[in-house]
């Protein structure tokens, strides 16, 4: 592994005091992975395996029991404006209006700017997520989707070097989620930020990510695999599912979540594989859609002829 990563996570371990006992409970151990600059990485795993904990440690809000994180060569030791966070809920300040919530971040990030510049900059990002109409409303007067848009606008407006998203669309209905996913792609496409995102939605991960990290079940969870999403960009919800690699990746992910994440901790063979994973310094790299490139070209040609025929 000589790859030069922008963010490097090395042998991260987190233990919590187990309730009622003196010993510590290991949530996850030996977690090592890297994120390249400009890369969009998603992490998937069952509830409780420690995804949020990893994200909070990356953000500098929580400390690891063991292990280190380096970003751009510097160790992550506490929260910083270089890392923006979007939480699942409650990351907006309810007593501030939409605009003030965004200027709150912008003012912290660019203290030397005057008021007009702060507002102009904030409005630009609110425009990107389509919220110019709601700037004077308080979060309580916004729908869940609009609130998450404000959070996204705020975190992009502070232009962090690494953006951390903890199940940002988990509480949204499918329709709203689809729309905001596309807005996220749009904003990300313009800023080319490095993103680390937690999700429990396989399709969302394939749509958004360059790479998907798969985590086994806790306790003693590990990051087992790193799955490359070799589907060309720009992607959108309707076309991505027609890419021949889509179902290969999807089946791999679902198979991991449904059976292998369990097997890895329960069966003999699984435990042996876990040993392997534990011994490796990085998760196993996979590219389920690698051999689908040529096929895809064919498929898209067929589809375009169909479209032409339909027009006639």
């Amino acid at each position: 592994m000589t790859k030069k990563y922008y963010v490097k996570v090395e042998n991260l371990v987190k233990k919590y005091p187990a309730s009622g006992k003196n010993e510590l409970l290991t949530v996850f151990e030996n977690c090592s992975f890297g994120i390249e600059k400009g890369e969009f990485v998603c992490i998937i795993g069952h509830s409780g395996c420690g995804k949020s904990t990893i994200l909070n440690i990356l953000a500098g809000l929580d400390r690891a029991t063991e292990g280190n994180i380096f970003m751009n060569g510097k160790e992550v030791l506490g929260p910083s404006l270089e890392r923006g966070v979007v939480f699942q809920n409650y990351s907006l300040l309810p007593w501030l209006s939409t605009l003030k919530n965004v200027t709150f971040g912008v003012r912290a990030r660019f203290p030397q700017w005057n008021k007009a510049k702060v507002i102009e900059h904030s409005m630009k990002y609110l425009e990107l997520v389509g919220l110019t109409e709601a700037v004077d409303r308080k979060p309580a007067e916004l729908s869940g989707g609009m609130r998450q848009r404000v959070s996204i606008a705020r975190s992009f407006a502070t232009q962090p070097k690494l953006l951390l998203l903890d199940e940002p669309f988990g509480a949204l209905d499918a329709l709203t989620r689809g729309i905001i996913q596309e807005e996220l792609i749009k904003v990300w496409g313009e800023t080319k930020q490095t993103v680390f995102m937690i999700t429990h939605d396989v399709d969302e991960a394939i749509l958004l990510a360059d790479r998907i990290l798969l985590m086994t079940n806790g306790p003693f969870a590990r990051i087992a695999e790193s799955v490359k999403v070799s589907i060309p960009r720009p992607r959108d919800r309707t076309s991505v599912i027609h890419h021949p690699g889509f179902y290969k990746i999807r089946n791999h992910l679902v198979d991991f979540l449904v059976s292998r994440s369990k097997e890895l901790t329960a069966s003999e063979a699984g435990r042996a594989e876990m040993q392997e994973i534990a011994a490796a310094t990085h998760p196993k790299e996979l590219d389920p859609a690698a051999d689908s490139q040529g096929q895809h070209a064919v498929v898209s040609k067929v589809r375009s002829t169909i479209n032409v025929r339909n027009v006639k």
């Binding site: 929260p79 709150f104 912290a108």
Partner: peptide
């Protein structure tokens, strides 16, 4: 709420500013 304190922390607000603005 812890999340609001975390918002202040991730924005690197000083203790004073956290006290007054959050």
């Amino acid at each position: 709420r812890k999340d609001w304190i975390n918002v202040a922390r991730t924005h690197e607000l000083s203790d004073m500013r956290t006290a007054f603005t959050v």
